[in-house]
């Protein structure tokens, strides 16, 4: 069915869309404005001159690259750990029968809603006592508290959507139970696994509170707390510099968003709302 474009709706929608997108646009514009132009009494919408000096400064004069590397290691490790555990766990929750399974599923959903601030003090004590405080490892552990329930819940609904007949067929055709999992379930769940992995990565990339509490040295500091440190430590807040850092910090998200938007929105429905 071919639909005519809705002109009136377009005229209503686009100004709102632009208003919503404006803060991000302003971030971009600010990041390429020469410093002098920034503090003029009548700000210009479009910069008169474009400069990349702020980007150069972020990358060379600040520990930004160190933070970026930390965030990358942190988000990637969290994703790998969480996905490996939750793929097996979700499969077990969906396809096996044993006592306590339903209770466990409810518990997972419950922990998915649990506020981080409740866990933060005990986690801090625990990580200090096992000597992991101030390391990236401590953050990976802390991040599983929210990423694992989330990934389990998401993957559970993805896997529940795979027809059980496929595994039955594979087993009749000669596969063992785990063979059927590898040959049939994993390939079928792949879009869901990708979507869950992307979400986990984004969650870990954006996390702030645990990073604030558990890490206080540049060696292990991720971007979120790192960039805020740049704001706080600066005597005179350099907005252009911060906007350039913000843009750079968002680059991985923009890449994920540009290439995997379909995965993101499908995962969204599966995990958050449909239950």
């Amino acid at each position: 069915m071919k639909k005519r474009p809705a002109w009136i709706a377009s005229l209503v929608a686009w100004p709102i869309v632009l208003l919503i997108a404006f803060p991000l646009l302003w971030m971009l514009i600010t990041s390429v404005k020469p410093a002098a132009e920034l503090f003029s009494t009548s700000p210009t919408l479009l910069p008169k001159a474009i400069t990349f000096e702020h980007y150069v400064r972020v990358l060379t004069d600040t520990p930004f690259l160190q933070y970026f590397a930390n965030s990358m290691i942190l988000a990637t490790s969290t994703t790998i750990v969480v996905i490996s555990i939750s793929v097996l766990g979700a499969y077990s929750l969906v396809r096996f029968a044993y006592p306590g399974r339903e209770t466990l599923a409810s518990l997972v959903l419950f922990t998915y809603l649990l506020p981080s601030v409740v866990l933060i003090s005990p986690l801090y004590l625990m990580l200090v006592s096992i000597g992991l405080a101030n390391t990236l490892a401590s953050l990976v552990i802390a991040y599983t508290t929210f990423a694992l329930p989330y990934a389990l819940w998401l993957l559970r609904s993805f896997m529940a959507g795979i027809p059980q007949d496929l595994e039955s067929a594979a087993m009749v055709d000669g596969a063992s139970r785990m063979g059927a999992f590898v040959d049939v379930v994993l390939p079928q769940a792949l879009p869901g696994i990708i979507s869950t992995a992307l979400f986990t990565f984004i969650l870990a990339w954006n996390e702030y509170l645990y990073a604030l509490v558990l890490v206080n040295s540049d060696e292990a500091r991720p971007l979120t707390t790192g960039v805020m440190t740049m704001l706080i430590s600066a005597f005179n807040i350099e907005w252009s510099l911060l906007m350039a850092a913000s843009v750079l910090m968002s680059v991985p998200l923009i890449i994920i968003f540009a290439f995997f938007q379909r995965h993101l929105t499908s995962g969204f429905g599966a995990g958050g709302v449909k239950g």
């Binding site: 067929a169 087993m171 009749v172 000669g174 596969a175 063992s176």
Partner: peptide
């Protein structure tokens, strides 16, 4: 797998 059977499913269950 060990029963020497083959099965056709209502849903076909093609991979």
């Amino acid at each position: 797998a060990a029963r020497d059977i083959a099965m056709v499913f209502q849903s076909y269950a093609l991979y």
